[in-house]
Amino acid sequence: MFAQITPTPTWYLLLAAVLFATGAVGVLVRRNPLVMFMCIELMLNAVNLSFVAMAKALGDIGGQTTVFFVLVVAAAEVVVGLGIIVSILRKRPNANADDLAELKG
């Protein structure tokens, strides 16, 4: 009886919503810029998961193509973001998000 239950797309979308909210809370709570960046990756993955669930539910391969582009843009974003973080943290080690409130270099 338990084996007959198959997860519907709604389950995947709800899981993606929870993952997105977890990432958002992480961005709000954490102060280390690197960990905040990881939380942004969590949010991106939540959106990817819901895109794939939608592709399956609507029977349209376009959702998976979009996830492909999201992966590429996420890779470029991580490279640029980590470059900025490296150049900031090299000037002032152990800076957290509060110290970086001004955009002064």
């Binding site: 797309p9 709604t10 979308l13 919503a17 029977g59 349209d60 391969i61």
Partner: peptide, 20 residues
């Protein structure tokens, strides 16, 4: 908010493309 939107619109999730 997101969960409410998902649950409310779950009946509109039906295949309309070519299928995976």
């Amino acid at each position: 908010l997101i969960g409410g939107a998902i649950v409310q619109s779950r009946s509109t999730l039906r295949p309309r493309g070519d299928g995976i």
